[in-house]
Every structure is written in C-alpha cells, then in structure tokens.
Design a protein around this nucleic acid. Sequence first.
RNA 1: GCCGGUGUGGCGGAAUUGGUAGACGCGACGGACUCAAAAUCCGUUUCUGGCAACAGAGUGUGGGUUCGAUUCCCUCCACCGGCACCA
Length: 920
Amino acid sequence: MQDTYDFAAVEAAAQRFWNDSRAFEVTEDPSRPKYYCLSMLPYPSGALHMGHVRNYTIGDAISRHRRMLGYNVLQPMAWDAFGLPAENAAIKNNTAPAKWTYANIEHMRGQLKALGYAIDWSREFATCRPDYYVHEQRMFVRLYKKGLVYRKHALVNWDPVDQTVLANEQVIDGRGWRSGAIVEKREIPQWFLRITAYADELLRELDRLPGWPESVKTMQRNWIGRSEGLEIEFAIENEAPVTVFTTRPDTLFGATFVTIAPEHPLAQKAAAADPRIRAFVEECRRGGVAEAELETQEKKGIETGFHAIHPLTGERLPVWIGNFVLMGYGTGAVMGVPAHDERDWEFATKYDLLIRMVIVSDAVRDAIAELGREVATHADPMAAALGESQPLDVLEAPGALALLEEFERRIVTEGAFTDYGTLVNSGEFDGLDYRGAFDAIAARLEREGKGRRRVNYRLRDWGVSRQRYWGCPIPIIYCARCGVVPVPEEQLPVVLPEDVRFMGVQSPLKADPEWRKCTCPQCGGAAERETDTFDTFMESSWYYARYTSPGAADMVDARANYWLPVDQYIGGIEHAILHLLYFRFYHKLLRDAGLVNCDEPATNLLCQGMVVAETFYRENADGAIDWINPAEVEIERDERARVIGARLKADGRPVSIGPTEKMSKSKNNGVDPQVMVDKYGADTVRLFSLFAAPPEQSLEWNEAGVEGMARFLRRLWREVQQHVGSRESGTVSGERSAVSGESSTAPGSQPSALSPQQKSLRRQIHETIVKVSDDYARRYAFNTAIAALMELFNATARFDDTSATGCALRQEAFEAIVLLLAPITPHICHALWRALGHDDPVHAHPWPQADAAALRKDTVTLAVQVNGKLRGTVEVAADAPREQVEKCALALPEAARYTAVGTVKKVVIVPGKIVNIVVG
RNA sequence: GCCGGUGUGGCGGAAUUGGUAGACGCGACGGACUCAAAAUCCGUUUCUGGCAACAGAGUGUGGGUUCGAUUCCCUCCACCGGCACCA
C-alpha cells in the first residue's frame, strides 16, 4: 500500500484490471435479472465536454450500483456520427467529414476510457458506417411499402446568396450565417414519416410511463396537441370554398372575417391580380421557418377582396391574408373571431375589423339570470320559485341589456374573452354552454354538409429529408418512366462515399454528376438516385436497440427481447420532446415490424441538467466583447467573503463578471474535462460531478469545489491506510466486519457489549447504509449520498478508540464507505477494498445490508414548539406514552416561560418529530 | 409568442410524506504546525440587535390554507430549456 494517494497509478491499475478481466462485457443470462442502463450517445465533436462527463458519470454510478445488487447490467456506448458540425469542419479545414469524424471518435474513446466507465466496449459502433445505416435504409423501404412514408412539399430556409438550404440554427436574426443574406422560405419536395398515424398511441402510452418525469410527459402531450373540433367549410363568392379547423365552434357566430396563409391557393390568386397583395405575399416569404421566429413576428395582413359566406348566417365576410397563418398546419385557413380569440382580437383591432361578442362569462350570465328572476317573480312566481326562468330569454328585464353592453364594451376595448361561457347573439343556439353549442352546431353543419367533427393534432409528420452530404443516403430512385422507386433490399446499402472533397457549401453528393446515376430496378433504364440524406435523428432513434444485437443480420435479433426495454435512460432535458418522441415512435415501428415485443423503449427516464460556469469578459474599445475563460481569472472578495471583482491573472487588471451560463465555446466558459482528469484524476472529477448538484438540476463547475473533493479522497486514502497499518502491526487482531458479511466475531454479534460511543458509531454506519442505498436506488440523489458518506467518514476519523472492538468498528465503517462509494469513485475504492483485506474486486462485491439491531434507538429527541416557533428540545424514551411526552414538553423551562403567560389551548404531538404547544 | 422548469447563507446545495431551515462541500475569518510558505490539522461562520444570556427577522414578490408552509393554493417578477433542419 502506498503512503500517499497517487491517483494516476491507482486509476491506471484499476482500468488495466477491468480491461484485462473483461469485467463489463455481458451476455444474455436468463438466470439473473437484467438491467439495461443507457446514456444518450455523444456526437463526436472533437473532445468530451463536461455535459458528457456528467451524463456518463450518472449512468455509470447507476450501472455499478445495479451490478453490486446482482443485476446483469448492460451499459453500452456508441457514436452519433452523422451531422452538420462535420461538414462545417470540412469547409473550414478542407478535410473530409469522415476523416474528421473518425479521428474525433478515436480521441474521445480514449477520454471516456480514462474516466473508468463500466462500459461493454465490445458493442461499440459508429452510426456513419454502412453496416449500421443499411438497417435504417431497409426500414425506410419497408415503411414505404407499408404506406408510412410519403413525399410532399414543405418549407425550408433558403439562402439566396449561397443557394443552399439552411438549418434553423444557421439563421441568425433572419439572415444566413455565412452570407448574411436575408433568408427566404422556399417549398421543396421532401420525404416524411407518418408519425401522426401513431399520434394517439404516443399520447396514450404516456400514461403508462410512471418512470418518466411529469414535465417531459406534459411537454410531449402538449407537443402532440390532440384537439377535438370541427372542420367548417366557408363558401367563397366565385371561387372554390375554404375549409377552416376550429376547436371553438361555439364562437362561430362571432366570426367576422376569414384569414388564409400567404401560400394558400386563394392568396396566390389574389396576388396575381393585385400588385399590392403580391408585394405582401412576397414580404411574407422573407425570414426563416422556425416557429419561434414566426410566433414572435408582428402580425400583419392584407385584404384579398374575396368574400366568404358565413355557413349559418349567410353573411359576407372579408377574406384576409395573415402572415401568422401557416399553410403547413391544419388547412392553411382560420375563421377570425376577434371577440373570443387573442390573436384575432389583435388582428381586428389593428385593421379595424368588426368585433362581435357571442359568448358571455358565467358571472354576467348569473347576474342577468338574477335580474330575470326578479322580473319573473312578478310575472309568474311559481315558475321563478321552481328555477325555471330562462336566463337569456329575459333580456327585456331592466338592466340586462346594460350588463351585456358593458361586457361587450370591455371585450372591444380591453381584449378577447377566451374562457368558455354561454352563447348570445347566436340565433337558435343562444343560451347553450360550450359543450351544448359544440354538439348542436356540429349537428347542424353536418346535416347541411358544411362541416364535420374532426380530431386534429398539433404534431406534424416527421420530415426526414436533409439537403446535406454527411448523412445516411435516402434509398430512393427516380425513374423517368416508373416514377419513384425504392431501392430493392438486396441492393442496400446505398453507400455514402467517404473520400470526398468539400468545395464551398454544396453537398458533394449533389455536386457529383456520377454518384446519382443508376439503373431503374423496375425497367432497367437510366435513372437517378435521391441525393438528400436522412435527418440525423433517424440514427439516434434506434441505436439503443442495436446495442442489444451486435452483428445481427437484421436491425436486431432475438437478443433484443432479453435486454429491452431500457431500464434507465439518461440524457439532457433539451431532448425532452424531439429525440424522445422519435425514439418512442421508432420503437413502435420496430414492434410493428415484429422485431421487438414491448410497446415502449424505456421504462425510466432521467433528464440531467446542464453544466454551467461563470462568465468573464472585457469590452474592447470598438465595443466588441472578449470572453475570458474562468481558468485565467482570479476572484476578489470583501471582508464578508462576497465577490467584489475579478482580475485577469496574466495582467492583473480587472475583468467584468458576467452571468453564470451553460458552458459554451461562444462564452469561453468551458472547462476541459481532460485538463481536470489530468490534474485531479478521474475519481475526483466523477465525485464532484455527482456532489455539486442533484442530477436534474444544473451543475455549476467550480474548481475550488473540485479541490475539496480531491482533499476528501486523499484523507480517505490516508485514514484507511493508517487503519490497515495499525491492524497489521499487531496492535489489534485482524477482525472482519459485519458489513462485508464474512465474519462471526463482528461487533454486531454482541451489541450489549458496546460502549455508548461504539454503539453510536455503529448506528451511524448502518443508518448511512440505509440512507445511501435509498439515495442510489430510489432518488438518484448522489449529492446527499456523498454528503452522508462524508459525515460517516468524519465521524470515523474522529473515533479514536484503540481497543480491539474499536478497530473492528473502524474496519466495518471503512468497508461500508468503500462499498457505498465504489459506484461513484471506482478506482480508489478498487484499491482500498484490496487494502482492507479482500480478494474479490469491489465492483463484483454484493451491496452492503444494514443490520436492524444497530439501528434500534432507545430514546428520541423531540423539537418543542410554542405556537409553531421552536423553543427547545426534549429527550424522551422511544416508546414514551403521549401523556409523558406532553408532560416533558410542558416542563421545559423555555416552553414554561410562554405557557405561564397564556393558557394552553392544545398540544399537537407528532410522534418522533415535534411537540407544538398552542398558547392563547 | 407558446409549452416545460427553476428561484433557500458570501457560493454550490440539504431539509425524502406539511413537522427542529441551512446537512455536506466551497469560500472567508481565527488558531496550531513551519525560519517562511504550501500542504495538513483544530475552531468560528444566515442576517440584525446585544459583552452575554437571549430576542427578532428570514427560503424571489404579494396574498391564502394550517397548530405548524422551503414544501399545498392563487398573483406577480426574474432566469433557464424546447419550439419540428444544432445535437
């Protein structure tokens, strides 16, 4: 055993042991319970960042804990290797995306291995390899044949200068990131997966995922956005009718205009006839397609000159074009009900359109009903007494009209009334509530053939086409004679050429006149391949399944049903909607293809928070901001330890302190995990990652905190070493503890023989086992588990009993600490466990069990409150009767002082917790 | 704009089912060791008043429920994540 803690040697030795013994390679074993612990796979961006370290450290702690509990644990790793950054790097450095990506993978694999994760590396793969994506192409072809794939036109961001499609991320303030040109919307043909066919199941199954965070389920529910409403047809004078969808048919009589999308055929027609309208439609093309951009832009419109006929009143309503109506959503047209819709109200107010109230609030209805009752009492006392007055048939009642007019005036001047209420100004439907009006209006429109009930989803089909090179080729062939032909399965994969030269912004696939040339599988004539590639969400939607079946001829084989579903999935909250919805959708596709037999891919989900750090900056003379890395800065404090400033170490001059933000290149506040591992060791980095915050919260990286963790591990090493040294020197005989389960002469076997101090330490050991076990298994609260282990360690270090029993207790305490800490800091625990005299490796040792006898308490401490305010504590026997507890509490001098001045009204006793004396 | 989340000492955080607010760590301060420094060890550390005993205040804001609220309900504010082509 070494005197001082040499983390580099300890970590290298442990990693060599795990590697040589293939400790974490697993196979299916029906005799043991399985546990599939999955962390989201990384994009190989070049270097590991702290977000990865956090994610994988959480997953590793969970995996190693489960392993010690006896589970057959699968923890795999792969590379989400297709994506935009590789193309950007290719343009910048003039290297092929493949070469860049593979080099990054090599480097990052080494970084992951240095962190000591218990990963089964034999299952590793990169998603950019043909033997991975061939399965994705085959699935696409099968889905095409099933009718779950289709092609349609959809809007993209178009950079008119670079002549290329831009990702939303590449549109900054409405301009292309490279060219600076104002981005336009452009419609191009694209491939879609019919996720909406699964919308209902994706929604319903959320209720059967108790292990997923409520917040994620709520976000997914809202994203799917199931709504029941009516499709209503508005006839247009001299033109084809326009169909709108509404969830508020009860407000139909309040419709005073119709708004259509700029891309709507009717809008196109209007634009052709009127240059002013053409200019407006043209203006609507400016800017990108991101929803956040569309929803925050100023609502604008123009009148088309067309008129719609209200389906029930026959009234002529003006047809407007609105920039907030989107062709891709619903029918591309909405009815304008300004009195009862926020957005329509704004639009009507801006363009001076009619606002007609057709719903009144319950408060107004009740007030009018009250007036009506008064009138009725005179006219027909009997009916009034029976409550038969029809509230809205009594508008003649004095004051009723005034109430209505006042309500309408408030709507017109202050804003729409969007709650449910009672119908007015709606002909035969007056007096009905929302539900009644919905049904009655639906019935009438259906009878007259002017509308139908419809369930609508906010969820749109998944557009999978990308006009990029570095992705999986879409296996489709276009033939002049046969049209669209999927590539036959036996001709797959369609291989993406990796040895390409990147010139400018265009995809090498599209630039190469040869690659696309092929023969039509149907007629044998000359044809062309699709040059678009898949959205990279495709690869990350089924990788979890591939891990279970390395080398399988199909996507997966029978092994998938041993491992799936994933027992614990861990990843960033930023994936709450898109990735996790596609992941669930794809699993259902696998199930319906007969490849797996469960309904959901993951039973438990943990979303970890971001890793953040302080930012520091200096403003240049020209107003530009230089962001300075926290590692280069020194903090200044006042006498109360408050931060008052910061200086650059290099020049000693002050820098400004910015907000604490997510680690990023742009704010230069990233901390390189590699630097931390080199300086402090993997165990210290892992320990800090789990200690500084609970997994779901954001984690603030702070190097002083890291040093604290290193200090703790050094102390642990030293104390265990001293304990082992004193034991070996013969001061005491080498006893084994109850914790490791290997002894019959443990202190636990004669509890009555223990001194109060010994009893107290032994209780703390076993209380810690209970608490830490719960923190691991139920709460994933590694921060509090570590805190409890630190407390136990501090108590053990202070415990200076040199008797044989004392030494045995120390052994018991250190064994507990090492076992309980092993999933978090596996390297040091691997070495210390050996030092404590064990031959089996700690990662394979059973998780410790608490001894119930050690937990037993004779007395309890109760807090004594007077009127809810703490005044002292009393110590009573654990089984003391209520009367005695009350007597002790009232006898407490601090309490008696208050009870003396007033009378005791009540004494609340919560057994084992508090006594609250209520004094009046 | 819409959806979801968060807010507690100087800082990160704890308080698990409505029951002693501030565990654990960092920082700061005082002390020991040292020629000195680093490292290490011991102690103090929510704020206000007080020599002290002690008293009062306190979990983003304002209100409510309760014997008792960081925890439950309502209002407002600030910040963070997502918004379908970043991954």
